[in-house]
Every structure is written in C-alpha cells, then in structure tokens.
C-alpha cells in the first residue's frame, strides 16, 4: 500500500534501513513535491539491521514483484551487506507455498533535504476520504486550489474556465466515530495556493489511514501526513506564489 501510494510521485529511491526501521525521502522530478516515509521496527514481526544500509530501488520494479503476493501472505525482505539485490519472500499462512523473488538494486545518488521543525499557523485533521473527494472534485474545475484556514473553518476554493467552486469544512467532533471528526488548530489565519495535480496524487495514500492532517503556514510548503500505527507517510508540497 505504501509503494502504491508513492510510486507515481517518485520513480527511483533509497530505502534507508537502520535500527529505527525503514525510511525514505525523495522529491519528484520537478522538485515541487517530496515524500518522506518511515516504517518503524515495531511494525515488523521481526526486524534485524546490523549496519545502516541504503537499498536503491526502482519502485515500478518493486511494484511488479509485490503484485505476485497474495493479500494475506507473510512478506520477508532481505538484503546482504553491499547488496546487488533485494530478496522478497511471500509465504501463505498455511506455509505450503513459498514464492521467492529478487529485484536488482541500483546506486541512487539522492539529495537529502533538511526539513526544519515548523510551528504551523494551522493544523487541520479531517477524514482522508473527504479530503480525496474534495481534491478530485475541484480538479475537474481548476488546476489550482486556494486553501484558507480561519476561525470559521477551512475553505478549499478554485476557479476555472467553466466556473468556480468552494468547499468549507467547519470544526466538528464526532464522539462515536472520531475518525470522522474535523479538527482545526489555528495559531493565525493562513491562505495559500497549491497545484491540485499533486494533491490528487498524494491522495493515493488514502487507504493508509482514515484521517489525514494538513499543516499550513503562509509561504511555506504544505505538510500532509497519513499516520499509520507504526509509521507515517508525509508529503510536502511547495506553494504557488504571487497570484
């Protein structure tokens, strides 16, 4: 699911393995969007990493091999020191089928960016399916969306050749189903413009989490986080400037 969520944004990337788990940071070709992923050791039934190692993987190749696994299969990933290949083993729960695949690794000279800790002006958590719906609907009208966070709520608005559209979400607490709540923490009003093409792309991570958190400050990249039980997938998107 994680590979599915990011494979259309980045093609080749290093899976950085160390004591804390498997991490990945990669920018898209245009340097407008960045994905940062972390799968913590606690999320694996067994995890061992003797030395820090970067596995340079072509995500399309990895995706092809992962398609050979059944949904409930146990997956084991293995790589030696200074590896040429990443080994994947799929086993069904009855232990009567074992599938073994190797994918070739590559040397990827990847630029790592330092992402400063930021006190965001607005932090909004909403159902991830709702966010996906809004992005898809507005992309039919325009290529850009304005996102405005005020004490009234968060407003997504766009204008295009056929007309305009806007969706406003107000804070609402759902006691029975907290994953359907919308919460807005506001330090200061924020108004930014973003490309919808990227936002729709990020929404491929919707299946990873029932909620998504948007963190916004004026004139800095938007942070979109899908939290998992033992890790996260974060996307950063540079704003459009100077409307």
């Amino acid at each position: 699911q994680v590979v599915d969520a990011i494979k259309d944004l980045v093609q080749d990337c290093n899976f950085d393995c160390n004591d804390s788990g498997i991490a990945l940071q990669a920018m898209d070709n245009s340097h407008v969007a960045l994905v940062a992923m972390h799968l913590k050791t606690e999320g694996f039934s067994q995890y061992r990493c003797d030395r820090n190692i970067a596995l340079g993987v072509n995500l399309a190749s990895l995706q092809k091999v992962l398609r050979a696994a059944q949904n409930e299969d146990l997956l084991t990933l293995k790589a030696e020191d200074a590896p040429d290949v990443l080994s994947l083993v799929f086993e069904n729960s009855e232990n009567d089928r074992i599938s073994e695949y190797d994918i070739k690794l590559m040397d990827i000279d990847q630029e790592h960016l330092g992402i400063p800790d930021t006190e965001y002006g607005a932090t909004v958590t909403l159902p991830s399916a709702e966010f996906q719906r809004i992005c898809r609907d507005l992309m039919l009208i325009s290529e850009s969306v304005g996102i405005e966070a005020t004490k009234e709520g968060i407003k997504f608005s766009c204008a295009g050749d056929i007309g305009s559209g806007a969706v406003t979400l107000r804070q609402n607490a759902n006691v029975d189903k907290p994953e359907l709540s919308t919460t807005i923490e506001l330090q200061e009003p924020v108004a930014l413009t973003f490309s919808l093409k990227y936002l729709v792309n990020f929404c491929k991570a919707t299946g990873l989490s029932s909620t998504v958190t948007l963190s916004l400050s004026n004139e800095v990249p938007l942070l979109i986080e899908y939290k998992m039980e033992h890790g996260f997938v974060r996307f950063y998107l540079a704003p459009k400037i100077g409307d």
Binding site: V32, E111, H112, L113, G114, T193, Y236, A238
Partner: peptide
Amino acid sequence: TSTQARLNDFFKPI
C-alpha cells in the same frame, strides 16, 4: 497568474 515554487527554495540539502 502565479508561479509554482520549488522545495529547494525552502529546504536545504544536508
């Protein structure tokens, strides 16, 4: 019209 900013304008390589 607006221009699309790049992440390198905000985040520096480490």
